[in-house]
């Protein structure tokens, strides 16, 4: 279900005013919800076995943003997480490292040190949520200060949340300007992930609009959710966002990454998402640089499946680390 690709010329104009941005976003083709869900479901039925499964599991591990976003996060927990990100399976050093550790801004320094101590400096990134995560309800200045603090502490990636209130009220340019400002605050050192909180956008049309809006504003990654609401990443909304990044690259030549987050807990789910990526965006996105899983419990399940493939015996939670 390809969207009609706007020309590059058209795209440079659309952000000129609130009106033109609205016209562009509302001019995007509507989403066939039934078709989208059916497509996502049918891609989920692919059977991935043996060597392909082993490859998929290792790829999925290398795409995990190992996340802890709790009020109760302690430096000790973040240190443990950092060590785990570098060596996910202490009993098997052939297990790949995860892509990143994702924490709150005040713990970026701790995460950075922990990763360096485990020998993963430069290999495992530190991502920080910012902009008054997860609600995003704070004045712009506060949000930008949040971002600057994270970047100053050494965050390689910044996960911002959009102002859903403004988006739902139709004030697209405000959202656009905010993403631009945050992108500027990230500078050249940090990649920007833009979280839409798809569970709060209520329609697939809105998710498509938000995806284009985020990409126009300079997002390096578009991300489904914070993991803090009832509905998080689903195959359907991720498929929709994968279509958006595919079409955006076709229109502008700029590649943007996708990160489903929240609710992906099993290897089976993760492999289904990889099938979606391959079949929608293409192989170009099958890389930790362009596709991530925002997850915490997923990693343990991937490791247990990995152990099962290696030994032929089903593994159990006693054989992976406790988060």
């Amino acid at each position: 279900m390809p969207t009609t690709a706007p020309t590059a010329h058209a795209l440079s104009d659309v952000t000129a005013s609130d009106g033109s941005l609205r016209r562009f976003l509302h001019g995007l083709p509507g989403v066939d919800a039934v078709g989208l869900e059916a497509r996502a479901a049918s891609l989920g039925t692919r059977s991935i076995k043996t060597t392909a499964k082993a490859y998929a599991i290792d790829l999925a591990i290398s795409m995990v943003d190992l996340t802890t976003l709790e009020g109760a996060d302690t430096p000790g927990k973040v240190r443990a997480l950092g060590a785990k990100a570098v060596h996910p399976d202490p009993t098997d050093r052939s297990a790949p490292a995860t892509a990143a550790v994702c924490v709150y801004p005040d713990l970026v320094g701790v995460a950075k040190e922990a990763i360096a101590a485990a020998g993963g400096a430069g290999k495992v990134k530190v991502a920080s949520v910012a902009t008054a995560f997860p609600a995003g309800r704070a004045p712009l200045e506060v949000k930008l200060a949040d971002v600057r603090a994270a970047v100053a502490a050494g965050a390689d990636e910044v996960d911002m949340v959009i102002d859903r209130g403004a988006f739902l009220a139709g004030r697209y340019l405000k959202v656009y300007d905010e993403v631009r400002a945050v992108k500027e605050a990230c500078g050249t050192s940090a990649r920007l992930k833009v979280i839409f909180e798809t569970g709060e956008l209520s329609t697939y049309d809105n998710i498509r609009r938000a995806s284009w809006l985020g990409m126009l504003a300079g997002a390096d990654f578009i991300k489904t959710s914070t993991g803090k609401v009832a509905v998080n990443a689903t195959p359907a909304n991720t498929l929709l966002m994968l279509e958006a990044v595919r079409d955006f690259r076709a229109a502008t030549g700029v590649q943007v990454g996708v990160k489903p987050a929240g609710g992906i807990r099993t290897s089976k789910d993760a492999v289904k998402f990889l099938v979606l990526v391959n079949e929608t965006a293409g192989e170009g996105w099958l890389d930790p640089h362009w596709f991530r899983f925002g997850a915490s419990s997923l990693l343990n399940d991937l490791l247990m499946q990995r152990q099962k493939l290696a030994t032929g015996r089903y593994s159990g939670p006693d054989y992976v680390t406790v988060d």
């Binding site: 015996r313 089903y314 593994s315 159990g316 939670p317 006693d318």
Partner: peptide, 9 residues
């Protein structure tokens, strides 16, 4: 057989 080999049994 898989139950006997299962690490979580």
């Amino acid at each position: 057989a898989p139950l006997a080999a299962h690490q979580d049994v």
